[in-house]
Design a protein around this nucleic acid. Structure first.
Length: 572
RNA sequence: GGGCCGGUAGCUCAGUCCGGCAGAGCGUCUGGCUUUUAACCAGACGGUCGCGUGUUCAAAUCGCGCCCGGCCCGCCA
């Protein structure tokens, strides 16, 4: 209806602003998806200013949100990072931007999670906390349930805290907003009342999306004053004076088994309950003034279509610019706390730098991806390449260059050309020794650290060694070298090899340079007619219980001589 | 069954919006690093762009049909 200018033929390829999928296809081509999204947000803001429904100094609001229902895993970081990039692009363009994040903590606990985690991110089995207390609270809002760890005011606050910690860890400033608080402080009052006043229209709109909406449907779910559970059966609405609803506490359908209601009949004010999600979400847009919100693909065909309809035709507001992001998997499997397939932000940051994690979320949101711990080296290599392309250190085609130039400055805190990145798998190998000086020396000798490198750059490079070692240990992969000091690994050598090892021991006992030892390994093998590769293999077996390892000569020269000699003689 | 998103080298992915030589990294193989092991350097091998079809001088790219995977179309969020 907006485009009826004569002579302009309708064109199906025109981007539909209500379609959350088409965001990446804007009129102007951008190397980075967030620029295309920002164009749309700006168009929305301009339009609202022109129509006089928006003040010039109102900030642009980017929103995200999740229920603090349990272990906040890496998938939830989409909700933080996708909004962040759009917020940053808009800030870059000179806008004042708030990134708000709702903890949807008035939602009821619908089923018991099998796994929880403490504030440090340690996973804990349900059986290790008071599961009974949680079970009795099924159906109650997260913020009304005691924290099973006893460290926070409620279950909801416990997991909200971890969400906030995750955002801090990836250096994204969010304003965390408790949904319960919005109800309790009255921020929802006016809109809740409005929706109840217009409940006929609310019903009519929602009935197009949900079959259960009938003439008795009331868009408000009170909390039972008797048992504390959220109930769905409203028997009367009174909007005169202090608005309230009458209810009967009935069973709630929660998937496999219903949550029993207590049968209590009572009265609740509009602060003592919540709107159903399909109304609550659009209402949050209005209360918080939301201009942009990314959401997972599960919302794309359900909540979003009804949400924008409710916004326009019940609340009479313009819904925010939407964007769908694809879900990703963890080592090929869906995230699942019950199956133990979860990883927290804090876990991931023990394995790589936060910049690398931020980079992961800068990639095209429309593509489903696998976050592979097993192949984390690939992701880190990809990031290192992005960085090198940005600094013109490697050749890349036009597209890759454009992406790197645009995205890299948003991914890191500050581009610093003198930074040093040890290749991730090499860093893992360096983790074989705990000696920081030895790590640095080997890194220098192998040419990864320039002689004139500034101290901060060397420090930064070596910081990766800890992370890469954690990765190698966690995955137990071929880079998991560990000097087997305490006991000698199982081994079986032929006589010639044993003689050669004995001779090498004598040589090392005399004291020689790293390079001399390396040379002597070859010479000794040749003298005893042992295959050089096999002889190195024997060395790796004795010291690492592996087939491969670091360059052996220089390494043996650095470990204390008595131990090396004894081990070569297989005495300890 | 209907709607939507994705499918490109062994692996991970870019390129698709705007049609114009099929790309990168890893892996593999060969060679180099004045003595084969991680790393590093050079080169090689590697493709039915899910399948079919239409449009076009020209299709990974646009249209249509189909196949496979995921999400939604009950409730909840």
């Amino acid at each position: 209806m907006s485009d009826d200018r004569p002579g302009i033929e309708s064109d199906d390829s025109v981007v539909d602003p209500a379609n959350p999928y088409t965001l990446q296809r804007a009129d102007d081509h951008h190397a980075f998806w967030a620029d295309a999204v920002a164009d749309r947000v700006e168009a929305r803001v301009d339009d609202q200013r022109e129509r006089g429904v928006r003040d010039r100094d109102d900030p642009i609001v980017v929103k995200g949100g999740i229920s603090p229902s349990g272990v906040p895993h890496l998938g939830n970081v989409n909700e933080i990072m996708r909004g962040y990039y759009v917020a940053e692009v808009l800030r870059e363009r000179g806008h004042d931007v708030r990134q708000v994040f709702t903890a949807d903590d008035r939602d009821p606990l619908r089923k018991l999670p099998r796994t929880l985690c403490d504030l440090e991110g340690n996973l804990v089995d349900l059986g290790e906390v008071d599961a009974g207390a949680l079970g009795r609270n099924l159906g109650a809002p997260y913020t009304d349930i005691p924290d099973p760890f006893g460290c926070c005011d409620s279950y909801g606050e416990h997991f909200s805290t971890i969400i906030q910690d995750s955002a801090d860890a990836v250096d994204v400033p969010i304003e965390l907003i408790s949904n319960t608080e919005l109800y309790e402080t009255g921020a929802f009052d006016e809109m809740t009342r409005y929706v109840l006043e217009n409940r006929d229209r609310a019903r009519e709109v929602l009935a197009d999306y949900q079959d259960k909406v009938d003439d008795d449907y009331v868009p408000f779910n009170p909390i039972c004053e008797e048992c504390g559970k959220i109930t769905e059966t409203v028997t009367g609405v009174d909007l005169e004076g202090e608005p309230s609803v009458e209810y009967r506490c009935t069973d709630m359908d929660a998937g496999e088994r219903p949550i029993d209601g207590c049968g209590h009949e009572g009265t609740a004010t509009l602060r003592e309950g919540k709107m159903p999600w399909r109304f609550e979400w659009p209402t949050q847009w209005e209360i918080l003034g939301v201009d942009f919100e990314p959401f997972g693909k599960d919302h794309a065909e359900g909540s979003w279509p009804s949400g924008q309809d409710v916004a326009r035709n019940v609340l009479e507001i313009e819904p925010p610019v939407p964007m769908v992001y694809e879900w990703f998997t963890l080592d090929g499997e869906p995230f699942s706390s019950s199956e133990g397939n979860v990883v927290l932000v804090s876990d991931v940051l023990e394995l790589l730098e936060s910049e690398v994690l931020r980079y992961f979320f800068a990639k095209d949101p429309a593509k489903a991806r696998d976050f592979s711990i097993e192949r984390l080296d690939q992701l880190v290599d990809e990031f290192d390449r992005l960085e090198a392309v940005y600094f013109d250190e490697v050749d890349a085609d036009e597209d890759e260059t454009a992406f790197a130039k645009r995205v890299y400055p948003l991914v890191v805190e500050e581009p610093r050309e003198e930074r040093i990145r040890l290749p991730y798998t090499f860093a893992a190998v360096l983790g074989m020794t705990d000696d920081p000086d030895l790590r640095e020396e080997i890194a220098r000798r192998e040419g990864h650290v320039p002689d004139d490198a500034p101290g901060w750059a060397v420090e930064g490079a070596l910081a990766r060694v800890e992370q890469a070692r954690n990765w190698a240990r966690r995955t137990g992969n071929e880079f998991d070298y560990e000097l087997k000091r305490r006991e000698i690994p199982d081994h079986e050598f032929d006589d010639a090899t044993e003689d050669a090892l004995a001779e090498l021991a004598d040589y090392i006992e005399e004291g020689h340079d790293p390079d001399e030892i390396q040379g002597e390994i070859y010479e000794t093998a040749k003298r005893h007619d042992v295959d050089v590769g096999d002889f190195f293999g024997a060395g790796y077996r004795l010291f690492f219980d592996e087939e491969q390892g670091p360059k052996l000569g220089p390494f043996l020269a650095k470990v204390d001589r008595e131990f090396v000699v004894d081990r070569l003689r297989r005495e300890r």
